[in-house]
Amino acid sequence: QVALSRTQVCGILREELFQGDAFHQSDTHIFIIMGASGDLAKKKIYPTIWWLFRDGLLPENTFIVGYARSRLTVADIRKQSEPFFKATPEEKLKLEDFFARNSYVAGQYDDAASYQRLNSHMNALHLGSQANRLFYLALPPTVYEAVTKNIHESCMSQIGWNRIIVEKPFGRDLQSSDRLSNHISSLFREDQIYRIDHYLGKEMVQNLMVLRFANRIFGPIWNRDNIACVILTFKEPFGTEGRGGYFDEFGIIRDVMQNHLLQMLCLVAMEKPASTNSDDVRDEKVKVLKCISEVQANNVVLGQYVGNPDGEGEATKGYLDDPTVPRGSTTATFAAVVLYVENERWDGVPFILRCGKALNERKAEVRLQFHDVAGDIFHQQCKRNELVIRVQPNEAVYTKMMTKKPGMFFNPEESELDLTYGNRYKNVKLPDAYERLILDVFCGSQMHFVRSDELREAWRIFTPLLHQIELEKPKPIPYIYGSRGPTEADELMKRVGFQYEGTYKWVNPHKL
């Protein structure tokens, strides 16, 4: 086992960053958080920038500027975001240094004079007029057009580079997404736009490419001749908990499936790229999406959770019991969808996408189930092999396979070949997804960000279904809070070829 401390991990990262040409360590950078008073800024962006600063992973002359409508001070920003920093008493001095680099400007999102004030403020910072500028839009999409237009007109660096990070949702359907994309691309070049999907920053999602293309053993079996089906799962054990009003506007397909799960599907299904260059990788992902037809209604199961009468606390409440959810809402909190990649490698292999709230566990994984062994000599005792990439929690890679049961006879039983990170790298604290992705933006690497043509294809696949749901308002199937979801989803999976045995229990190697 390799035991690495946080300091050692960050030392390795620093070495990698400083050796590259793309990370300008000594240049002045300004990180501007648009929507600095909001939840995302408070819980994710400010803490992430602090962790990067604490670990010495930001360029040395980096300033952080918050911008929002609320009249706040840096002290206010500190008060609301610091509880999420997880700072230790030993880091007190470092924390003071961090907040000394912070400033805040209040202004409207659609007022040109406010942006001119913001620009004057940035120019007044040390070497601010020639600094590289990175704008993070932690804002609702309704203000994107006004904000990007004003940034472009008043706040661009004339000497350094300018980059803009856009948070999902990128529209509600193909038409609104196209409108937003066309607007942003009329102001910024594609190499300046970073559409963030934080799932692409997760260690195991990034590991998929290495697993596939750096190991000879997987190449020959990664196709329709050997793989019976692919299941991509995202499960949350909690409901909307008072935030249903926002969720109800989008629903589970827009929230998770059309982005996170579809991105994971691309990494499983794509061909080997010409290189690890950002556009070479994204070219292959677009090719996969172009091979997927629009979702067919007979390959869809929609569910909505109801309270568990035997549960406790939140578990007793259904989705419609959330006071922020519109009365009688038919918005799905669970969806199972089957897609097919219609190309030579994957023809006929079902890709089953499942996601839901208020389920029995927290889990995100990719599961490849292989065909049955031909010419069975073990009297149907063999179960199908599976390769599982567990994204969260407890990152893991393992192969479910058959071995001989101890004893006199040739009785096979299920076991696993474990390729888990935790076994080799004991207690290594890896940077989280937002840390990686923000560092990628500083480096100018777009590999783990969504390109406009990729986004367009993703919406093309799901828009007809979303429009049909909005028009017909089908009643989702009720499922109990804390269950596996509607049984109809299991029946759909069985119908397209997935075999669920229920006889195997994964042993978490992190707890051995």
Rank of each mutant, 00 (worst) to 15 (best):
L265Y: 02
H467C: 10
K317W: 09
T487W: 13
K494M: 15
L267H: 07
M270P: 02
W346V: 02
C355E: 01
D255V: 03
P309D: 13
R345A: 14
V366A: 08
E342N: 14
D279T: 09
R345S: 13
G311A: 11
L262I: 07
W506H: 05
W346K: 04
G444N: 09
T316K: 14
T316R: 10
Y305W: 06
Y500W: 11
E435T: 11
H371V: 08
K505A: 15
E454H: 04
V295S: 10
D418Y: 02
Q380R: 13
V288A: 10
I389T: 05
I389Y: 06
E365K: 02
A458K: 02
P393C: 06
V306R: 14
I480P: 11
K285A: 00
E470R: 09
L267I: 13
Q263L: 02
S452R: 12
R451T: 04
A396W: 02
V281Q: 04
Y305E: 00
K404D: 04
V341C: 12
A274D: 12
R254A: 08
M270H: 07
F410M: 11
E361W: 00
D372H: 10
L261D: 00
L439F: 10
L417D: 04
R390S: 14
F442W: 09
F409A: 15
G311H: 10
R456D: 05
G303H: 03
L437A: 01
P406C: 15
L465W: 14
F442C: 08
V301D: 00
G328S: 14
C291V: 14
A335G: 14
E416A: 05
T403P: 04
F370K: 04
P431M: 06
S329C: 07
V428W: 08
Q380T: 14
R362M: 05
H379G: 13
I352H: 03
S329H: 05
L353C: 07
I438K: 00
K317S: 14
Y319P: 04
V325S: 07
S275Q: 06
N308S: 14
A269G: 13
N343C: 12
Y340F: 13
G303P: 01
L262G: 07
E284G: 11
D347V: 07
D418M: 04
E395V: 05
L417V: 01
G328H: 15
P350A: 00
R451Y: 03
L417I: 01
D280V: 13
V349D: 04
L289V: 09
K405L: 12
K429S: 15
L359F: 03
P273S: 05
P406L: 07
V286F: 08
C266W: 00
T487K: 14
I469T: 14
L419S: 05
P476R: 00
P326Q: 06
S329Q: 06
K383E: 15
A269T: 08
L353S: 02
N308A: 12
E365S: 09
P273V: 00
N385S: 04
P486N: 03
Q258F: 02
L289N: 00
Y425C: 07
E488P: 11
T420Y: 05
K272G: 07
P431D: 14
G313T: 13
T399N: 07
L261Y: 07
